[in-house]
Design a binder for these strands. Sequence first.
DNA 1: GTAGCCGTACATCGGCCGGTGGACCTTCGC
DNA 2: GCGAAGGTCCACCGGCCGATGTACGGCTAC
Lengths: 219, 219
Amino acid sequence: MINVLLVDDQPLLRMGFRLVLETQPDIAVVGEAGDGAEAVAQVAALAPDVVLMDVRMPGMDGLEATERITRDHAGSRVLILTTFDLDEYAFAALHAGAAGFLLKNVQPAEMIAGIRTVAAGDGVVAPRLTRVLIETFTRLNRARTGSADDPRLDRLTDREREVLIEMAKGLSNAEIATELGLSEATVKTHVSRILPKLGLRDRVQAVVLAYQTGLLRPP
Amino acid sequence: MINVLLVDDQPLLRMGFRLVLETQPDIAVVGEAGDGAEAVAQVAALAPDVVLMDVRMPGMDGLEATERITRDHAGSRVLILTTFDLDEYAFAALHAGAAGFLLKNVQPAEMIAGIRTVAAGDGVVAPRLTRVLIETFTRLNRARTGSADDPRLDRLTDREREVLIEMAKGLSNAEIATELGLSEATVKTHVSRILPKLGLRDRVQAVVLAYQTGLLRPP
DNA sequence: GTAGCCGTACATCGGCCGGTGGACCTTCGC
DNA sequence: GCGAAGGTCCACCGGCCGATGTACGGCTAC
């Protein structure tokens, strides 16, 4: 049995949801709340499996409530249900820890399926948002994995790229020499070839370039 | 009317899909393919709205086919349909440009809904994966927005932090002086205070730290 | 084969950098 | 009122850096 808490500032809407959900034998509406603060209190008292949460509410809004609930009551999972396709709300909601994000114009069957999905520990996102999520994900991941290569880097030889990477770790020429098993003179030669090729003044700018192109990335 | 191309190396499975899909008045199966190469050719010939794509196939697999299709035929959107919850396939598929990713054990109704969603330009992802996608998204985004502050940075004064940021952009002391309206001597003083506070040897390492702590981030 | 690129290595020189020590001023807290 | 902390400025010195020129062996391509 999935215990659900309804959170919305419109009593009529809560009533509608309750009627829809109670047609399902495996779903029970165990409580209601009219704002964020009340929602947090209800979650603490009732420990529902799923919280059906509106975003825009007087007082504490749904996002802050979601953040508190997911932080303090990991057992309860939050499914955001909001009016329109407000992307900023969506991303904020996911950051706040929501397990799902649906629009209020979904079919009842989809909403019910979403509740079951969230209760099972999985995630559900409105189709329009799923697309944005995928795009953002691939873009971020591409930036991380460093396929945003600067064309200038292609002009470097393999060895030069190696030296550049060591340089970008903050090593001195002598340290790079030790690291790569070279003489310091050789490293200096490489460095003196790398910088003009990349149009840079000194190794400091080389580090900047290395991070900005994704040649190196924050760990 | 949504034109669909079926891609799977098992003819029986294609037959099953075709029977299911043809119960829908707004969906038409316009072609089939048994491997990736054939799929690419069929997409070029038929320009279907949606490609229902298997991953594991002899010859060119579904991922490479997806990559080519989304690159060369932006009008056709690919919905990956694979056997089990292979996360690595999922992420690779999204990177390859897939608009959706479902498991073959979905209900027919969900698959049909997924096809409509993808045809409408939106995205659809299996619930289990949606969760991972959300987690990855929030994690990546958090890393980007730089909440991974190093406690050492707290020991810097406001002005020192300012100088550090300029330094991390690759500027020389003289340039920082101009930028902040100071004398070069002052900048040198700040730098000489910053480095020991952070336990660093030179400004190169300061740049590394700035990027690794998220004080600066790739654009 | 020979011209060219790459990788290795050296010497020298000017310049920026970083350390040290000192100085003055403002702001804040006791 | 006065010390502490932050911010601004200066001079000097040693050191690493980057530029320049030069050199040699290996490999590839023509």
